[in-house]
Design a binder for these strands. Sequence first.
DNA 1: TTGTAGGCGTTATCAA
DNA 2: TTGATAACGCCTACAA
Lengths: 342, 342
Amino acid sequence: MTSIKQVAAKAGVSTATVSRVLAHKTNVSREARARVDAAVAELGYRPNLVARSLRAQRSNTIGLVVSDIRNPFFTAVGRAVEDAAYEAGYRVVICNTDENPEKEALYLALMRDENVAGVIVSPAPHDAPRPHNWGLGLPLVVIDREPPLAGLDSVVLDNAAAAGELTAHLIAHGYRRIAGLFGAIGSTGEERRQGFQQALRAHGLAPEADVLVPPRREAGEDATRELLSRERPPEAILCGNSLLTEGALLTIRAQGLHIPTDVALAGFDETIWQGLIEPGITVLAQPTDAIGRAAIELLLARVAQPGRAAHQVRLAGTLIVRGSTAVRSSRLVGDRPPASVG
Amino acid sequence: MTSIKQVAAKAGVSTATVSRVLAHKTNVSREARARVDAAVAELGYRPNLVARSLRAQRSNTIGLVVSDIRNPFFTAVGRAVEDAAYEAGYRVVICNTDENPEKEALYLALMRDENVAGVIVSPAPHDAPRPHNWGLGLPLVVIDREPPLAGLDSVVLDNAAAAGELTAHLIAHGYRRIAGLFGAIGSTGEERRQGFQQALRAHGLAPEADVLVPPRREAGEDATRELLSRERPPEAILCGNSLLTEGALLTIRAQGLHIPTDVALAGFDETIWQGLIEPGITVLAQPTDAIGRAAIELLLARVAQPGRAAHQVRLAGTLIVRGSTAVRSSRLVGDRPPASVG
DNA sequence: TTGTAGGCGTTATCAA
DNA sequence: TTGATAACGCCTACAA
């Protein structure tokens, strides 16, 4: 490994001068600069980032600690985070906690021990309240879920409004007896449930069902099976995340039912497959790009100014209408075309 | 930040003794060990990994440089890599090159500058031959694609055999006029194409079409459109990766055709949606878990023994049969049940 | 404009 | 068994 010392020797200057050239300081003579540049090129020298971050007590790395790397939502956000970070001169390392609080603690500690500049984290679920020192003093931005402690920066979807929009869409398309399935982890499912209820109430309706279940495919299957086995099954099912949507879909299929004529289906989060299946699934898409960029923005602001007040950013989602919620009244008034995307 | 010095002071020993206790060396008195442990606990001391890796010229981190973080195949492999690495006392940071050779070079350099123990990489496509120093001297294992340089460890699917198996399955189910769409990046598509051709030849058949296209959804759409516009469209389309499968599916849908009666469809890589759509898509699934574990195994072996001979691991895939390739002869001989998974 | 020197936190060597 | 010390590579007062 070539070090700054060898460059200095080759250029016939001190290590301090090499360092200054590398840092683009102005107080270096033209001639010294040229010699150093030549030596750097010839030796293929690259500064050792480990040493640099030991010295600076801080690195240019940002940690992204996600609760499920295989959730398309998080990989999409990860892309955005990386792009925004890269533009700001930072790089991103991704860690996966698998919704496991222990792994979360481990990775947060790791990030601290690695001197990262800051961390963006989607918290794993916790039974017990978070320890007071949860963030370990790191600059921290919480995404996707309500921060487990007060006073933290965060970027979340306006879940209640989003769920309300989705519910209103179902109502507008003629569905009345609507069931809601929401993830029981973190604040997200609960908030969406609230928005669902409120939208129904605003139209003088009550939920046909309204359950919190583990946000897993299997739970979605089970809950849907229960709903469909009722004497009067719901006309539509609204799912609080894409895993629940998967499960609901599987059960509906398994029972040989048709979407949306037997039961309509709507969910959260845009994934590849929701447009590929027939009919496509109406979803409320999260603005993954905006979420990632906002998170970086908040994080860098906090790094620059650790004492500043905490900001909570709430972003709006986008309703993407597909065939799974086609107008129900078509049975009555004939073949109206399905609503357009928007 | 509490350092080893403060622990030493509090325990009334030298930093060397603290270090020894932390490293579980045996030559420490019982009493000194107890005092150090107490001090560590009291101060909440955690060793600074940056300093440790500066000193050791090596870290316990492994880099995973993937060409597309949003490809489910890579997130699945990432999961396996992480699990295996974790068991071996390493942690994993993930970087995304977006199939961009410049980003690839950048991240490989970053990994080196960060003193990672080694790197697992799925190479981005390259027009020009790779520079001789591509790996930067890092312990390196290539996955998914043929290594761009000789003498590197690698873990890849047995692509030719896999494509052959998929092709043979189509033939066995009564399809004769089969078109193949393969990704034009790296060795993978080409190998699958070879296996496809060979299997056809073995049955006295010739490909109905046999094209290399960019491995993107759009390219899959275009190529499929061309195929279906022919006077005699193929009876079946075999796609070399899941993005091409997506594209083919979209075009088939857009043209109002039915799978498999109008055209059968088969692809590579198991993803969530291929079992959710109707009919499900028959795929050749890659053993993502085995791939990740094999990669870690090779990497750690190379870290331990840098001079050892390069190993190329080829793994077999698994055929998952679904409705998209249902027996074609059913038109002639009636309702034979579809083949089972396996 | 340049160089010297000290220190970031850790571990290995050597002597005691 | 223990401790003092040097070194990993870099940056930055401070001095020249």
